[in-house]
Design a protein around this nucleic acid. Structure first.
Length: 498
DNA sequence: CGACATCGATATAAATCGATGTCGGTGCCTTATT
């Protein structure tokens, strides 16, 4: 009985919604796509399935820190036959893990590590019974440009004797779900889809006039709202700026967090936040995966993300304890163009593309494509994109066809991302229930509105304020800032329309 | 797009203005014969 094992290995008496169904399908050796809400115990699915299947479970994980956490977590249950294999491990330890694969039940690896010949050969010698892809939305979100090894996982799985595949995520719309299933070649796929609706998270969007007003509003909000909270920005520089502002005008304990910081520092801030030693984190989208903190009371977007899936992932870090929580987006009209420019930098221009192909034809060295691309001024992401796609397509095409095929792919990708961005922007401007609209994007319907639903359903910010509210008038605001704000607004009124 | 840095012109001089340029997010992995 599954329940017996649940009790024996983990000390729980009942399954959470979805767990039993997913495990049953996996044990029956089907491919399974599972979209379960955050905090619903996704890891238990592959753990328990692993015990049933009697062999090695490989878990593909996007972040080293996530692997470390999960390994520790599993060890707490008394399971010692678990390891993470990654560059963080000293060389000798890595070798020792490779030598002892047979003795392991659970192995955590990155998609990049799975490109190692040595690891692959070792894995071929043992009985891999389940291939798990955790945070599976990364396949679709990162595989095409940022981390191409995510698109090679299907081939890795085939080389391991095509064990069943379990893909786990908390947020993916229909298109992303189909993309994941397709890219992982999950042919015999059983899907378990649960609602993305988080009824205890109230949704609010505020349009403001200009950046200064946005900063002021941010300070008002964090002064007033019950924390702890997370604030998302779109650049590293702004996370520092935001943290400095909050430090200056409030007594809150605040820190910035972004991908440019040293790993130890990032780890420290994440831990301090988890231990309630920091009230507010000002961060880029680098922060969040694996941050399983129950009592986050609000998430503010100072800059909004690039698509709804990201928005849902980010606000989903609030209210995991089930208590009322708040998600606020602050936006100005001028926020609308920037994401498009950032998006285009992921790809080469037509001119760069021609230069790279011309150089490549001369040398025929796939490994050099990225170097050439960087030389002609491509971003690193664009260089990787070219490297990847040319190595797929160049063998079977002449340079003209290759160029056309690449241009077509670039256009497709940009169109797709522009549409996703547009969808989010439309949602921001929506003047009816935000939850209802959000759910239709995920093919769901809102049956009954929760008590605190959204700003179009009578949301009261006061319901989310601290016990001891600091009146806004007491928030220190020097006259220089006030004046600049006034001038800014005046200028804004002469600004261009739409 | 827009925030910010740099540069040159301006012209009783130091500081200011406008023109021009650059940059913007996410993370694995780096196993040397110069």
């Amino acid at each position: 009985m599954l329940e017996d094992q649940l009790r024996r290995y983990f000390g729980f008496t009942t399954f959470r919604p979805g767990q039993r169904e997913v495990i049953t399908d996996v044990v029956a050796r089907h491919d399974v796509f599972a979209m379960l809400p955050t905090g619903s115990g996704k890891s238990l699915c592959y753990l328990l399935a692993g015990y049933q299947l009697q062999g090695l479970v490989v878990i593909v994980s996007p972040l080293l820190s996530l692997m470390e956490d999960q390994v520790q977590h599993i060890r707490l249950y008394g399971e010692k036959r678990v390891a993470a294999l990654n560059s963080f491990l000293p060389y000798e330890e890595r070798q020792s893990v490779l030598q002892q694969l047979k003795a392991l039940r659970f192995l955590f690896v990155s998609p990049e590590m799975l490109q190692s010949r040595q690891l692959l050969e070792r894995l071929q010698e043992v009985n891999v019974v389940l291939f798990t892809v955790d945070e599976a939305h990364c396949v679709s979100q990162w595989g095409y440009e940022f981390r191409p090894d995510y698109l090679k996982l299907a081939d890795v799985r085939r080389q391991l004797g095509a064990p069943p595949c379990l893909a786990l995520t908390a947020t993916a719309d229909q298109r992303v779900r189909e993309d994941i299933i397709d890219k992982l070649k999950m042919s015999d796929c059983h899907q378990h889809i649960y609602s993305v609706d988080r009824k205890n998270i109230a949704l609010k969007v505020e349009a403001v006039q200009g950046t200064l007003e946005k900063q002021d509003r941010l300070i008002e909000l964090v002064s007033m709202l019950q924390g702890p909270g997370i604030i998302y920005f779109s650049t590293r520089e702004w996370t520092e700026e935001g943290a400095a502002l909050i430090h200056q005008y409030t007594d809150l304990r605040v820190a910035a967090y972004h991908g440019g910081m040293a790993n130890e520092e990032r780890r420290l801030i994440q831990n301090q936040f988890l231990n309630d030693e920091i009230d507010v984190v000002c961060c880029t989208n680098a922060f969040g995966m694996g941050v399983d903190k129950p009592n986050v009371r609000y998430v503010i977007h100072f800059h909004y993300p690039k698509h709804m899936n990201a928005y849902l992932q980010e606000i989903g870090r609030a209210g995991r304890d089930g208590r009322p929580s708040l998600a606020v987006v602050l936006y100005t009209e001028s926020d609308h163009e920037l994401p498009l420019y950032i998006l285009q930098k992921e790809y080469p221009t037509e001119k760069q593309l021609e230069q790279v192909i011309a150089q490549y034809i001369k040398g025929q060295d796939k490994e050099l494509v990225a170097t050439i691309a960087l030389d002609v001024g491509c971003s690193e992401t664009a260089a990787r994109f070219l490297q990847e796609h040319i190595s797929w397509w160049a063998p079977e095409m002449d340079s003209q066809a290759l160029k056309q095929r690449l241009l077509q792919r670039i256009q497709e990708r940009i169109a797709l991302k522009t549409k996703a961005l547009w969808e989010l922007q439309q949602w921001l401007k929506k003047d009816s229930c935000r939850r209802a609209r959000l759910l239709t994007l995920y093919d769901e319907r809102l049956e009954t509105s929760p008590k605190c639903c959204c700003d179009h359903c009578g949301l009261q910010l006061a319901d989310f304020s601290r016990q001891k509210t600091i009146p806004v008038s007491e928030v220190v605001m020097p006259w220089e800032r006030r004046l600049r704000l006034l001038l800014d607004q005046k200028e804004g009124s002469y600004g261009k329309k739409d």
